[in-house]
């Protein structure tokens, strides 16, 4: 890659400090305009690998957009507002299924998605099946539920 990622990112409103880690660069930018981001990254040739959804305590969802190009890896962390965020499918068609799946499993609304239909679960089931705590908190929550049942 022939450009300076940090200089390019400085043109994005809401983009904060870039952290370089063993597995690439991480940008924590909860208020980032993802449409502007997608537009810029398409121009500089970054390929969207996928988006990770993580359910937060307050009903919001953290979305991590994972990009790469050759040996360059960039992960951008943003946050939904009222569990809503703009769709980037019109800019990056590879986001189509990714956004539909996050809508299906995390109940995130992607504004401007051309057809935000369910992807992996039947339409008669409620959305947001994956909104569950992981790690130690998830273990404790499941233990409490099992105690109540028994």
């Amino acid at each position: 890659m022939t450009f300076d990622l940090e200089t390019k990112l400085s043109s994005l409103a809401g983009a904060y400090k870039l952290i370089h880690a063993q597995d690439g660069s991480w940008l924590d930018a909860p208020d980032l305009n993802v449409v502007e981001m997608a537009d810029l990254f398409l121009k500089i040739g970054l390929r969207l690998t996928t988006v990770t959804g993580i359910a937060l305590e307050d009903g919001e969802t953290q979305l991590i957009y994972h990009f790469m190009d050759g040996g360059t890896v960039l992960n951008v962390k943003v946050c939904t507002k009222k569990n809503v965020i703009a769709s980037i499918t019109s800019i990056m068609p590879s986001a189509d299924w990714i956004e539909r799946e996050i809508h299906d499993l995390y109940a995130v609304e992607f504004l401007g998605h051309p057809h935000l239909d369910r992807l992996v679960r039947p339409p008669e089931l409620p959305i947001g099946f994956f909104r569950e705590k992981g790690g130690e908190a998830g273990k404790q929550q499941r233990a409490q539920t099992q105690t109540k049942v028994s």
């Binding site: 996928t50 990770t52 959804g53 993580i54 992981g134 790690g135 130690e136 908190a137 998830g138 273990k139």
Partner: peptide
């Protein structure tokens, strides 16, 4: 993602 416990916080 890990919280330091024996169970991952998230696996994508």
């Amino acid at each position: 993602a890990s919280d330091g416990s024996d169970t991952p916080l998230r696996v994508k």
